[in-house]
């Protein structure tokens, strides 16, 4: 049995819809992981002990266990305690929190590395510590980690395929659907791979643009 791509066009709308879901879940989770990453970094560095310790356990759980397991836990596990999340929401939360923890590690390091003179200058003007963090230190730290955070976002895109297992109709699941009907795995997985690659290129272009935009502010 040779390759036959003629079956692909008939499934194109399914695949494209899957691609849109992949973009939607990636963007939502990326935003959550970015905002969450900043928040977690500030908690990890500055929150009182009583908040920091449980938080470290939480971060360790997210870094030390498989993302797949976390998705199962959020989607199937939470139902048991009466929290019944739609698959898309569970996927965004799982992916978002998972990568928020990784982003938080990057941002923590960057916050610590911001020149001490920046905090001093802000405090000298009369800003409180939290104002100085918000307006001066954290923005610079975030600016400094845009490239590695970008890498995390691309990893997030690739890991978004995992949410197919909880039934989000994204790209991988759409390909599987088509394969189930046509028995053409190679063709459809290849098409899906091309779609991931195109989304990836788009994300990289956006990242490069952000990097260029922030070049002057160093």
């Amino acid at each position: 049995m040779g390759l036959d791509f003629s079956v692909v066009p008939g499934w194109l709308d399914t695949i494209l819809l899957g691609g849109l879901w992949t973009i939607a879940i990636t963007l939502s989770a990326a935003v959550l992981s970015f905002v969450g990453g900043i928040l977690f970094a500030v908690i990890a560095l500055y929150a009182p002990w009583i908040v920091r310790q449980p938080f470290r356990l939480f971060a360790w759980l997210f870094m030390g266990t498989p993302l797949l397991l976390q998705l199962f836990l959020i989607y199937f596990g939470l139902i048991q305690i009466g929290i019944n999340l739609p698959a898309f929401v569970a996927g965004v939360i799982g992916l978002g929190l998972h990568f928020a923890v990784y982003n938080s590690e990057l941002i923590q390091t960057a916050i610590v590395a911001v020149d001490k003179g920046q905090m001093e200058a802000a405090r000298t003007l009369g800003l409180s510590r939290s104002q100085a963090l918000r307006k001066v230190v954290v923005p610079q730290a975030v600016r400094d980690v845009i490239p590695p955070i970008g890498n995390n976002m691309i990893a997030l895109l690739k890991d978004s395929a995992l949410v197919s297992v909880i039934g989000v109709g994204e790209l991988t699941l759409s390909a599987q659907l088509a394969i189930g009907r046509t028995y053409r795995p190679f063709e459809f997985y290849l098409v899906a791979a091309v779609c991931y690659y195109i989304i990836n290129l788009g994300m990289e272009a956006v990242l490069r643009r952000i990097e260029r935009r922030t070049a002057l502010s160093r």
Partner: peptide, 19 residues
């Protein structure tokens, strides 16, 4: 914080906010 608003300080290394 209120007192510091009345005292301007200029540093050797400027410490401008680069962002």
């Amino acid at each position: 914080n209120a007192m510091r608003q009345h005292v301007g300080m200029v540093f050797q290394h400027f410490n401008l906010f680069p962002h």
